[in-house]
Nucleic acid binder design. Structure first.
Lengths: 241, 241
DNA sequence: CGAGCCGTTGAGGGGATTCAAGCTCAGTGG
DNA sequence: CCACTGAGCTTGAATCCCCTCAACGGCTCG
């Protein structure tokens, strides 16, 4: 498979990290998907692969940004504290998503990014992106596309998950979590407090809704942080309003 | 195509539109603020100045995007319809803001853009931006900055204006409207239905809150769509929680 | 002048919050 | 091994805030 994407003779001359990136399972969906083989070869250093446990912080809001991150596996949340002092989750990032592009503009990180599940990230230094972008203008285009997608998703998140009655919001959140699990019926189930922070509800209300949906058979708890959805029942409940 | 739109002899002189742009009052805050005089001279055609009445639509969601718009004066809202069929306002744009950058990525407009007040816009065709960006790479950087700012504002909007009790949300909205009026105490006061669509409240609740704040002297109606704020009282009310 | 839209206010009901108490479960140390 | 502990989850009861339904007044416009 490596031989298919990279000519064998060149393989010796190519930096190990470049080979790893060329063979990356999320490469086509991630930031470097646009880079040609020529550019991929220039990824010779600076990229770190890191694994974080759930609840580990990737970066803090206001921190000077020196790197962006690509999500290889797991779910990351962007959160912020309101003027009133309460925590709100702005949106989630999943496989292939990019964290912290504001670092490329010499700006501090706009949100706090925290791992929801165990995650695997690629840490890409800002100056590497800068260099690659000079050689391959397609990268800038891809970055803009990602900004636009983030904007679109932020809007959808705000519009869909912060209006309507609590039950409806939780249902929509479950659908979103299924999407993040690539449509699988087994989803990551957030802590009740996090559900509250996503939907603008209290812990108690979040708990009540989850319990109710469990009793109705829309979902089944598999473990503390994992549940199985009955997607048909979920769709029906969403439609029922 | 260049020869068709601009007579050869005039091409060396500065086009009237280029002069207008160079003298634009919002030029330093708007998209073309980064362009040098050299690039500004290339804005010889294609930019239209347009004035829209309140409630006029700039573009619809899903419409193929052929142009971006810069706000010279007035306020524009981005809105969307939820899965449940209700209208929600995602954020507002004011002087110097850019509308519809997704058009630059050959994407349809993500939101519906509607004038809140009478507005003055500059319509900039996508292919003009493309041409300018080739000559002046700083323009791409500036575009990314704008995407990031939009993302930041969308997050702040969602977080601040869709949690807390109704009174608090309306107060925060008033503060935001003051910001859009360049800190002036005279603000544009939205229709009650629009306040509802911004804050996730019903028309009646929005009306009650506005009336209450008027009785408390936080604001005074100057005309149907315009009010004067007592900024000190507003700040105090916000702090009081 | 009637029609219609918008804003306002009231009354009642329902849903979310608040406060409070038990519960499960994993980790800890005796 | 097991009580102990603490964090997270659940559930109940009372309260409160917002929504719903309804009626009315002001204003613009045909």
């Amino acid at each position: 498979m490596l031989a298919k994407t990279v000519p064998p003779l060149l393989a010796q001359a190519i930096h190990p990290q470049a080979q790893a990136c060329a063979a990356c399972p999320v490469r086509d969906t991630a930031l470097f998907g646009v880079l040609g083989q020529g550019s991929i070869r220039h990824i010779y250093a600076g990229i770190d692969s890191l694994a974080l446990a759930a609840e580990a912080r990737v970066y803090a809001r206001g921190e000077p940004g020196t790197a962006v991150y690509t999500v290889r596996a797991g779910i990351v949340r962007f959160q912020r504290v309101t003027g009133g002092g309460e925590r709100r989750i702005v949106r989630l990032a999943g496989r292939g998503d990019l964290l912290g592009p504001e670092a490329l503009l010499q700006q501090p990180y706009a949100d706090e990014a925290v791992a929801c599940t165990a995650v695997q990230l690629c840490r890409i230094p800002v100056n590497l992106i800068d260099r690659l972008a000079q050689a391959d203008p397609g990268l800038n285009q891809e970055l803009m596309r990602r900004w636009q997608r983030a904007l679109e998703q932020a809007g959808a998140w705000a519009v869909e998950l912060s209006s309507g009655v609590a039950r409806q919001r939780v249902l929509k959140l479950l659908a979103e979590l299924a999407r993040l699990a690539d449509g699988s019926a087994e989803i990551w189930l957030p802590r009740r407090e996090d559900i509250g922070a996503m939907l603008g509800l209290t812990v108690e209300t979040a708990s009540r809704m989850v319990s109710q949906l469990r009793r109705e058979g829309v979902m089944t708890s598999l473990s503390r942080r994992c549940a199985a959805l009955d997607t048909a029942a979920l769709a029906a409940a969403l439609r029922a309003g």
